[in-house]
Amino acid sequence: MIFGKAKILRSHGWQYIPDLYSVTLTEEFRGFPLLTETDDKQDLERAAKICPTKAITTEPLTLDMGRCLFCGECQKCAPRNIKFTNEHRLAATRREDLIVEAGQTAPKFDTSVVRPEIAKYFGKALQLREVSAGGDASIEMELGATGNVNFDFGRYGVGFTASPRHADGLVLTGPISANMAEALDICYNSIAEPKILVVCGSEAVSGGLYADSPAVDRKFLDKYHVDLWLPGAPTHPLCFIEGITKLRAKKK
């Protein structure tokens, strides 16, 4: 028996990614989109029309990553206008910064709106309570993966905790189903101040495919201040890690 375990350990080897911030994902991954204006708009109009979450505007050309599900179909329709790069670092501190404009070369992360107490209180340790309110389980699994043997975000003092009383903030996933709205509110209010609110995944940021569903109730987001917006369907663990790290970094 002990030999069996030794064998597993040997095959397992070292799994953790030594530097979480210099990883380049596979070319296939669809992250930050590069947008280019063209004189003719036919391709783009087709792309905007088929986009399931109406994330694209044509006049002027913009793409809202908070709505985008990164399916890549618009790139097929309008390859001259839209090209998804494998840049996974997509976090933003303001909702409107997720709207990408033509010619923009990198995501915007505006540190000026980050509250100074975040670095002060949570710079060394940050425990989060995750609440899924209509999340489709893929995003929950990706958040779970941030603490796994590969990403091991716990090495920087960031983890998930069971009780909101032990938490320093809340991570919201899912479009906020009406049946979950009250529980979400209660959970958020059970977390002691100071606290942060992270909205994770395009479905949570904008409602995604369910933005207009009568079964969804998004009033929660009108009531409370959001510190970090993370797009993606689902958000890649490294996107979450990078966003949280920037949020709690000391300002230079």
């Binding site: 209509g134 479009p175 189903s177 009568p214 079964a215 969804v216």
Partner: peptide, 13 residues
């Protein structure tokens, strides 16, 4: 029921 998003309605919207 907490996760109800209205899938069957949205799919034929």
């Amino acid at each position: 029921g907490y996760q109800h998003r209205g899938v069957e309605g949205e799919i034929i919207r």
